[in-house]
Simulated scan of single mutants.
Amino acid sequence: MKKMVLLATFVLSVFHYSQNYAGLNDLLEKIERKNKKLKDASDYSIANKKFVLMEDFEDHSERHILEFGADNKITLIELIDDKSTGQSFSNIFSGDYIRKRNAISVRANYLEGKQIATPIIYSLYLMNANDIWYLKDINNSKRWIENNNLIKKNK
């Protein structure tokens, strides 16, 4: 009797989870369709390009400038403007990056020439919308827009 109850419970749970699996499968298909529309950026060179991220907080504002070198080196400039005092602070990080198609992994492990204990790491995805290239942070969805596009907008 116990075996029959366990078997029935197992069969019902498999049936229940298979319904959820069908929903997950549909969701994955939607994601695949969306990703197929994304442009492959393998031809696009990020060497000697700058990308900018701007953030505004209540007490300060931050500008991050990420410059990619031709030899897989990066320079990350962090500019912090304190709103209460009007002072500006900057940090200059350096490190390297690895790129595989649209995915870019950035590691900044030097602060003004001195190695730091905990490096700054970004996992970015290179994207294009309306001929504007930008990097999207995979972890928090922040967007780094290419510097040339900022200059075009200001003119």
Rank of each mutant, 00 (worst) to 15 (best):
residue 129 A to G: 03
residue 96 D to N: 15
residue 50 K to G: 10
residue 135 L to V: 04
residue 46 I to A: 01
residue 92 I to L: 06
residue 126 L to Q: 04
residue 36 K to F: 07
residue 105 S to D: 07
residue 71 D to R: 07
residue 132 I to M: 09
residue 102 N to G: 01
residue 27 L to C: 03
residue 143 R to E: 11
residue 24 L to F: 14
residue 139 N to Q: 11
residue 75 T to S: 05
residue 62 E to N: 08
residue 65 I to T: 15
residue 64 H to M: 13
residue 110 Y to W: 08
residue 91 N to I: 05
residue 69 G to C: 00
residue 84 S to F: 15
residue 36 K to V: 07
residue 104 I to P: 03
residue 27 L to K: 12
residue 119 P to F: 13
residue 134 Y to S: 10
residue 136 K to R: 11
residue 92 I to C: 00
residue 38 L to S: 01
residue 25 N to P: 00
residue 23 G to P: 00
residue 88 S to V: 13
residue 17 Y to A: 07
residue 30 K to N: 15
residue 129 A to F: 10
residue 80 I to C: 02
residue 13 S to A: 03
residue 122 Y to I: 03
residue 81 D to K: 12
residue 38 L to H: 03
residue 99 R to L: 01
residue 94 S to F: 04
residue 103 A to N: 15
residue 82 D to H: 09
residue 84 S to V: 11
residue 62 E to Y: 12
residue 126 L to N: 04
residue 69 G to N: 12
residue 99 R to F: 10
residue 14 V to N: 03
residue 72 N to S: 15
residue 38 L to Q: 04
residue 102 N to D: 15
residue 85 T to W: 02
residue 18 S to Q: 12
residue 76 L to R: 01
residue 79 L to T: 09
residue 74 I to L: 10
residue 136 K to I: 13
residue 13 S to L: 03
residue 125 Y to E: 09
residue 38 L to R: 11
residue 83 K to Q: 02
residue 38 L to E: 08
residue 97 Y to L: 03
residue 96 D to V: 11
residue 136 K to L: 14
residue 131 D to T: 02
residue 80 I to V: 10
residue 118 T to W: 05
residue 14 V to Q: 00
residue 42 S to R: 12
residue 75 T to A: 02
residue 61 S to N: 05
residue 87 Q to H: 04
residue 23 G to H: 13
residue 98 I to D: 09
residue 31 I to T: 07
residue 64 H to I: 14
residue 82 D to Q: 04
residue 115 Q to T: 05
residue 86 G to F: 07
residue 58 E to I: 15
residue 48 N to R: 06
residue 63 R to Q: 13
residue 107 R to L: 13
residue 120 I to L: 01
residue 118 T to Y: 05
residue 6 L to I: 14
residue 9 T to H: 10
residue 100 K to M: 12
residue 139 N to H: 09
residue 65 I to Q: 02
residue 62 E to V: 14
residue 91 N to V: 03
residue 86 G to C: 10
residue 21 Y to P: 00
residue 9 T to E: 05
residue 112 E to Y: 09
residue 60 H to T: 08
residue 57 F to L: 06
residue 42 S to N: 08
residue 109 N to P: 01
residue 20 N to A: 06
residue 126 L to M: 13
residue 39 K to S: 07
residue 108 A to P: 05
residue 8 A to T: 15
residue 23 G to D: 13
residue 111 L to F: 06
residue 94 S to D: 08
residue 121 I to W: 01
residue 135 L to N: 03
residue 102 N to A: 03
residue 72 N to Q: 09
residue 42 S to I: 11
residue 77 I to K: 06
residue 63 R to E: 08
